[in-house]
Amino acid sequence: MAARADGASAPFLPRIARVRSRRRETHDTWSLALDAAGMAGEPGQFNMLYAFGIGEIPVSVSSDAAATGPLVHTIRAVGAVSEALAALRPGAALGLRGPFGTTWPLAEAAGGDLVIVAGGLGLAPLRGAIRRALAERGRYGRIAVLYGTRSPADILYRSEVERWRRLDVEVAVTVDHADQRWHGNVGVVTKLIGRAGFAAAHATAFVCGPEIMMRFTASALEAAGIAPARIHLSLERNMKCAVGQCGRCQFGGSLICRDGAVMRYDRVRPLLTIREL
């Protein structure tokens, strides 16, 4: 193998990637497909993306490195850097460091049912895991994808979610608010857990979304019978270096960039309810 793909010898130095294509997902969210030779990332990991002269932010990997096709990052334009990245046109250059962090434990989930619960933009870090699970469908029992978001207009990867629905996957989408043009579910994502078909004793759950949503969801999954050690969350904290040296992403005894972002619920649960930790 040539130089380590994650750039361990020059961890602070971005490499140049190029936008292959750009797709609008919602009013403030875009997906960029990148040409980034040799740089990818497993589902659950993240890359540091740099917009020239503006800055760098962590963005989770939304593609499946095992499949052919470009590296995909989905970016919500909410700050100077994310706005600049989301505005990049095909052919434009950006800096990329990574991949960093832990992965969704798909191998551990094999043999049992897989319950994937996403909230809002939290579907983006799970997309790669869903695609991988579908590519190796036979390794899992039932697969349920439960997705809650704000309104029908905020649904990410809309056509792809429709496509998943036609495969051997139970897909349920719910929104917090809707008008009468929406005929799908309205209500919180935890409501979908009770309706989903899975054998809790052998199920593994992946959860990603705003932290409040993950706390409610993990609690509901546990109430539904999934062991806390088989519930995995993807946490978020401020990150600058991504290599465990800037100290910003500390979460108790963990560094989210190194020990996360995907972490086991039984290990983080006591800390999730400590304010301002």
């Binding site: 020059a10 602070f12 130095l13 971005p14 490499r15 140049i16 190029r18 020239f52 002269g53 052919g91 434009a92 250059a93 800096g95």
Partner: peptide, 15 residues
């Protein structure tokens, strides 16, 4: 940590 410079087709980064 590094410097970056605009080029014709984007930018280049050097330590």
């Amino acid at each position: 940590l590094w410097r970056a410079e605009r080029t014709d087709d984007g930018f280049a980064i050097s330590e």
